[in-house]
Design a protein around this nucleic acid. Structure first.
Length: 299
DNA sequence: TACCCGTGGGG
DNA sequence: TCCCCAAGGGT
């Protein structure tokens, strides 16, 4: 006699089966990747994947790990080298944080990426998502891993809403209730939920026809209501400070390791005040360094 | 909590 | 063309 399966199985079982067939072949999912780079490889990949699409990350990840295959190797690099290697991945403060995390790992953890979630959360640039992603995907421990893809899958399949709206902490708790007891199965479930959100249960045009959760999906059952789109729109990029900062930093990256005259940096920028603000804030963030009338990446 | 932080590809 | 948004985190 089998007991009635827990409701969570209605989600975990079909998802695991689907993942076995449909998972993309990504570098950080290959055994050789873990053999070669261990948890460090996972950590670097997760930093790069924060808000940067998979396809753009892959070549940068390989170059980065070839140059700095261990935390201590990166810790020994200069800020300028790190920012330049980060290239056009975007959000360059992540490069600073990754560098800082490498120093922290070297100094506080004997050069070994921590396994404990609390210890991981203590590192620069690591939050709820990245800490658990490292613990689960590098160390095969049992934790809920909740990113924007998983949140969307939970919102639709379980909560019946078009987009995630509840605080992400609540989705973390919800994911915990669905997590299989077995650590290995739970790791697959975490990866599968993310993969489904990335490739099928997408934000704009979900492909419900091929979704393994179609039969039990609360959102489909409700007639795919458009939940008023509570998402906050991303601030305009054109004319923003971010655009100005990006333009300045590109010049410094291209010139590195040389300095350039301050006057030569975006002299024609439409808003001189904004140009000044961009330069100052980059220096304040540690992404640039001024020396008299010269400016460069930090030395 | 809401806002800030780059960059580029796809619908 | 233009708009959306992408394996988040810090403040």
């Amino acid at each position: 006699m089998r007991s009635t399966p827990p409701p969570a199985d209605a989600v975990t079982m079909p998802l695991a089966r689907w993942y076995g067939d449909a998972a993309r072949d990504l570098p950080w999912r290959r055994p050789e990747f873990h053999d070669e780079f261990g948890a460090w490889g996972t950590l670097v990949s997760e930093f790069m994947l924060q808000q940067t699409p998979v396809n753009r990350v892959i070549p940068h990840l390989e170059a980065w790990l070839a140059r700095w295959p261990t935390p201590s190797a990166l810790a020994a690099a200069t800020t300028a080298e790190v920012v330049q290697q980060w290239a056009n991945l975007g959000y360059p403060r992540r490069a600073l944080w990754l560098h800082r995390a490498a120093v922290e790992i070297t100094e506080r953890h004997d050069g070994v990426v921590p396994r404990d979630v609390e210890a991981l959360l203590g590192l620069s640039g690591i939050g709820d998502y990245t800490a658990r992603a490292v613990a689960v995907f590098a160390y095969a421990d049992r934790h809920p891993v909740v990113d924007t893809n998983t949140r969307r899958v939970l919102a639709r399949a379980v909560l019946g809403q078009a987009q995630p709206g509840s605080p992400s902490r609540r989705d973390l708790a919800l994911m915990e209730t669905l997590l299989p007891e077995d650590a290995g199965e739970s790791a697959v479930f975490n990866a599968a939920a993310m993969e489904l959100g990335a490739t099928v249960c997408t934000s704009r045009a979900p492909r419900c026809e091929i979704c393994p959760l179609l039969d039990g999906c609360a959102w489909v059952a409700a007639g795919r209501p458009d939940t008023g789109d509570a998402r906050r729109r991303q601030a305009a990029f054109e004319g923003s400070d971010r655009q100005a900062r990006g333009a300045v930093l590109r010049i410094l990256r291209d010139a590195a390791p040389d300095s350039v005259p301050l006057d030569s940096v975006l002299p024609e920028w439409p808003d001189p005040l904004q140009r000044h603000r961009a330069i100052d804030s980059l220096i304040a963030d540690g992404l640039a360094e001024a020396d008299g009338e010269l400016i460069s990446l930090p030395r």
